[in-house]
Every structure is written in C-alpha cells, then in structure tokens.
Design a binder for these strands. Sequence first.
RNA 1: GCUGACGUAGCUCAGUCGGUAGAGCACAUCCUUGGUAAGGAUGAGGUCGUCGGUUCAAGUCCGAUCGUCAGCUCCA
Length: 643
Amino acid sequence: MEQIKITLPDGSVREYDKGVTVFEIAKSISGRLASDAIIAKVNGAEKDLDTKIDEDSDLQIFTFRDDEGKHTYWHSTSHLMAHAIQELYPEAKFGVGPAIDTGFYYDFDIDTRLTEEDLEKIEKKMYEIAKSAAPYKRRELSKKEALDYFTEKGDEYKQEIISELDESSEVISFYEEGAFTDLCTGPHLADTGKIKYVKLLSVSGSYWRGDEKNKQMQRIYGISFPKKKMLDEHLEMLEEAKRRDHRKLGKQLDLFSIHEEAGAGLIYWHPKGARIRNTIEDFWKEAHTKNGYDLLFSPHIGKSWLWETSGHLSNFRENMFSPMSIDEQDYFLKPMNCPFHILIYKNHLRSYRDLPLRWAELGTVYRFEKSGVLHGLLRVRGFTQDDAHIFCAQEQIEDEIIEVIRFSLFMWKSFGFEKLTFYVSTRPDKAVGDDAIWDKATESLKNALRSEGLDYKLDEGGGAFYGPKIDIKVKDALNREWQMSTIQFDFNLPERFDMKYIGEDGKEHRPFMVHRALLGSIERFVGVLIEHFGGDFPMWLAPVQVAVVPVSQKYFDYAGKVFDELKKNGIFAELDKRNEKIGFKIRDWEVNKVPYMLIVGEKEEEAGTVSVRKHKEGDQGVKTLDQFLERIIHEINNKVSNI
RNA sequence: GCUGACGUAGCUCAGUCGGUAGAGCACAUCCUUGGUAAGGAUGAGGUCGUCGGUUCAAGUCCGAUCGUCAGCUCCA
C-alpha cells in the first residue's frame, strides 16, 4: 500500500495509507477528537470527515468548540429542520437557511401561519429524522439540471438563486440527506445522527432576500448541540438574558420610564436612573477634558438652511421630526450635532496652528424612528450622543486616530468591558470624495489599530458614503456583542460647508473631519450597562450606594446622623424609616441590589459604630463610620466592585 | 412600515361554555418596636387599550384602530 504524509493539527507529520479518510486520521490521533470532530480542512479547503486523502496533505480538524465547527453543525441542523418542514408541510418552498453566530435559521414559504406550538411538532420530526442517521451526500449538477430540479419542485426562490449564479460556475453543488435535497455549497456533518439536541427558538416574518418590497416568508430560528449540557447552559443563558432585560430592571429598580401617551421612544429618567446617567456624564466630561478635548454646547433646533446644506433633508427627511414653522421659516429638531460644530469652526478663519481641534458635546438629538424598531433604551426617538468632532490636517490623522483608539480602550475598561472587537469599513460603491483620500484615510485607520497591536476585521464596502470608519463592538457579561463606538471620517460635510484652514504655505486647505462617539448614545449605553451588570452596578455607578437601616424607630436619630454623614461625603444614601421589621427591610434592599446596608440599633448607637452588610455577601461585621467611609470612598474612586 | 402574538388595578398575573371583575405585591390607616432575605388587621384602588358590531346579555365572539412584544427592513 502506498503511503502518504499527513501534517496533523499539532504540526507533527505522520504516514498513512493512501485513501485514508479524515475520520480515520482523527481517530488515530485521539478517540475523543474523533468523536468531537465535525469538519476538517485538507490543505485549507473544508472537507467532510469521510473525505479520502490520496496525497501528502495538511490536515486541520474542527470541533464544536471552534467557530467553523459550530457553523457546520448548525448549518446541517438547518437542513435537518427544512427536511422536517418539508415532511410536515409538503407544499413548502424554501429560501435560505444559514448558520449564524447564535445558531441557525431557515426561511420558507408555506400557506399556514406557524405558531410557537408548531415548533414543538417540527422539533419532534427533526429528532425522528436525526435518528435515521441519514448521511449528508454531496451531488453536483449543471446549472440547467439544477434549474430543472427546482422548476419541477415549483420552488421559485431556489430557481431565482440558481439563475443568478455566475455563468462560469459549471457545477452546482447539492446536499442530499434522506428525502431532502438542498442547494448548498457545504460542508456538512457526516450524517444527521450527529445532531443530538435541538431547540427551535422562535418563528417570525422575514423578507425574501432581505428586501422589504419582496414577499414576506416565515423564518424559524433554532440552535443545536452535540451534548445535553451545552443545550442546558445555552437555555440558561437565554433565561439569564431575560432576567437582565433592561426594560424589566429599569422598572424594577425605578430607573426610567416611557410614556406612550406622551410619545413613544422618549425616555423619562427617574431620580435613580438620573444618578447613574449623571455619574457617567461627569466621568465622561472629566475624561474628555483630560484627554485634550474642549466641551461645547449647541442648540436643539436649526433652520432648514442648515439641514439643506448638510444634506440631511435630502437623505434622511423621513427620519426627521416634522419642522416647526415660525415667521415663514422652517426649524427642525437636530438629528445630528455635526453642522453646529462646523458653524463654530467657521466662526473665524482657522490656521494650521489651531489644529487639531477636538470638540466634544453630549448632544441630544431627535430622530423619528419607525414604530416597529423602538426598543426600551436601546432604540429611541430622542437620545444623547457622546459626540465629538476632530478637525485636523492630513498629516495629523494617524496620530489623532491612535489617540481616539487609546481613549476608547480606557473608556470601555473604566466601565468594566474588556472584550472589544474592531472593524474597519471601507469604501462603498456609492461614495463621495476621491479615491486617494479614501485610501489615505482607510490606511490611517488600519495603521492606527496595528500600531496599538489590535486585531481588526475588514468590512469591505461597509463604510458610510462619506468616509471609512472603525466600529468597536463590545461583549457584555453574557458574551453578547453590542456595536457601540464608532470613529468615522467625513469627506462630505467639510466640502458642503466649505471648511478650510490656512496652511503653512499661506494657501487654503480642507481640514479632515472625524466624527466619533465612544459610548454611542447615553440611553443605549445605560441600557447595555444595566444588562451587563444585571442591575448589580459597581459602587461608583450604583444609584443607591448605601442604605441606612435602623433596627427600630428608637434608633432613627442615630441612623439620621449616620445618614447625614454619608450625604456630606457625597454618597448616594437612603435612610429607611419604614415601619417594618429588620428582616423585611434587608430583603427589600437586597432585591433592589444596593451594594451596602448599614444596620444600626442599640449596640451601634452605644458604641458609635455601624454594622456593615454587603449585597450578596451578607454581614461584614461592625466598623466605625470612618472606617466604612474610607473603604467605600476607595471603592468609588477606583471604580472597583469588590475589594 | 411589514408578519405574527399579546393588551384585565401602579406592578406581576388569574378570569372555564358569553351571565355586569379576582389574587399577590405595592399604597393608606391601625396594631406591633424588632438584630441580618417577606409580622398582623383593615381599607382604598378597574368604563377589562379605544371605537363599532353580533346578542336578552360581551373582559370573553366579530371588525376596525391605537399600543406593546418577537423578528424582518431601516439606523446619518
């Protein structure tokens, strides 16, 4: 038997018989790896596990722990689900069914409207089919054969996909699993039997090809796992996410409200919510001042001239609140702060010596979002951007971007977010500004990230029409990713407003303009913060930091003195004078997630001390008030939640 | 805006076959004055989202409308 050399995942090289399958190799390395293996790459190309290898090759093996393995697993499950739907609803026509980062979905068109109860039926069918352990078999057809197949089936969606495929693609691959065949590039699991635990999560509408002019299909989302424990953990995470929902916690902790009778998507900040917001804004202002920014204020409305010049009226009019007409002039609520900052820039002639200018504003803007998109604090109609604009000369852009990146890292760290992902978005098809400028700016974004040693992902063509950008996504405590910061070049507004500065050469130059928001919007940021901490805010952000709890009315005077002392030191404290038993009060402050309680009664009054109780940890023993103050002030200043 | 589900007390929810509304929490008053996660009694609180229809009778059935939610589309 002829021998071939295989470079294994760990880098070592071993010899195998020619024609050995990927699975056999995996088994020879480790039995466990073989049973966990989902997909392999042979010389960089994804292959099924039963692929035979005939020549010297590099082999990589992916398990469910890898993104690629996971995606394959979920993609195969989406085929399995489509199979089950086909069995239950033979008239079904299918759209697309990819794996996504949180599972998979499949879009299909059937006459009956599915409900959540129907999902159980489909799940059951899926388990039935999975048990048959039908192999996923790859087949290749010509474009014509493929088209004929779906014409016969009457599935116009698949026909549309095929007819749009490149003429040059000679063969079209199909995957067949039992009685179900689907257009697909693969790869797939070896057989349906590998799919052990499935949960279908929701059913909803979705437009064919994501275009709202097209017919709406039904989409089922689901997830699957090879092990029961993994499924249970995932479902527990979803439950935890529900418990942390900022809308629910916002109500429970009395942070904010929305009054639909007064206007959907407009936030009312209650005293406790406002404390959190003020703490954030105070920190933000101080940090910006220390980092070389000047703070601005600008008006909330502006005449139509401003928005015609900026281009907002022609691009976003349907998302702006209707104008107020005064003295035959139209005034609009601002959807953006930028034009105001530009007017300040243009207030006098600028020299290259003035640059860079870094101007920041917590600017409240109003955008008329469509009714179906509003969502608690996360998507609203009035919000405060932590906005800033940097005006600089071309040779300064890279340094400026580096500074913004460093600053944003500092900002996210301060709020307890460590996992950040960076995306660089490049020139879209429709864009303003010439290519050379785009290239220069895009390079400066990439260079800045590289020089800070940060990895980034490229989003080709994902930039705004007016410039390339860096987006930062942050992961919260539940590993959910939120798009928060954005750093964007703008080649549009400086042009439209004819901005300039006088250079060293005595000539006029166009400044570079960078928009950046680190937290995004304060509303959205607080929403994410609530969910990140699950309402258990670290000491420096907590809206109530200390509750003073007298054991009975006899000790109200002493409790009042303790309370006054805390207030004098700038602590958010509450004095609990309710006529309730101590156990009741302790429970109440615990469920309201207050970091510290000071219990005071006879003992404490006599000794001039306080009994400290910490949230979730219980009794911490007796301390003098000074000792306690020292401890919590240290906690607040160092922005730590535990000492 | 689109598809679907849901709107009952401040909050969380029950209300069967159509027969004029119920609980817990919160709130008020009183009793109780306490030692680390819910003491007791009493009371107040609702045009059942809104409008129309069917019916002797509608929270319940039908239609429209407004809103919320899950997604889709959108997000300067």
